[in-house]
């Protein structure tokens, strides 16, 4: 029943036998052991499962693992080099862009895709860029602040401080 999936996850080339019905999010969490990508809904709305597929933000609960064949995937674990933090991670930390943190990996991956295209997004552009992600506890004000701070840090090329 299994079919071969060849995919690069966070820079590592992999080959796994998977069932066609396996969703990408379950492949990442259960086969790859990368549990930073969360599942927050059954309706493809919350965005907690957002990862980068060849650089574009996608909802990994809304793709079959086999549809990622040949692609490069980046999850929250692969955003920063080992032991370091990405400017977005630092900015969410410093600006209190999270409370429970459940939605955070998805927000950070969606924001990473946004900032790759737009180095200086306005409040409105951040809102539109993150419209596919829901947060149930922080509220969006600090999330927006964090994305702005990260954008600035990235423009200034500031080295990501380790551990905030």
């Amino acid at each position: 029943m299994g079919q071969t999936l060849r995919v690069t996850v966070n820079g590592e080339a992999r080959s796994d036998e998977v069932e066609p019905r396996l969703l990408l999010v379950h492949y990442l969490r259960e086969t790859c052991g990368l549990t930073g990508t969360h599942v927050g809904c059954d309706t493809s709305q919350c965005g907690a499962c957002t990862v980068l597929l060849d650089g574009a933000a996608v909802k990994s609960c809304n793709m079959l693992a086999l549809q990622a064949d040949g692609a490069e995937i980046t999850t929250i674990e692969g955003l920063a080099p080992e032991g370091g933090l990405h400017p977005l991670q630092t900015a969410f930390w410093e600006n209190h862009g999270l409370q429970c943190g459940y939605c955070t990996p998805g927000f950070i991956m969606a924001a990473a895709a946004l900032l790759a295209e737009n180095h200086d997004p306005s409040d409105e552009e951040i809102g539109r860029g993150l419209e596919g992600n829901l947060c149930r506890c922080t509220g969006y004000v600090n999330i927006r602040k964090a994305v702005k701070a990260a954008a600035q840090a990235m423009r200034e090329g500031a080295a990501a401080p380790i551990g905030g």
Partner: peptide, 9 residues
């Protein structure tokens, strides 16, 4: 249509 993630696919 939908959101950026939906539009990408």
């Amino acid at each position: 249509v939908g959101d950026p993630q939906i539009r990408a696919r």
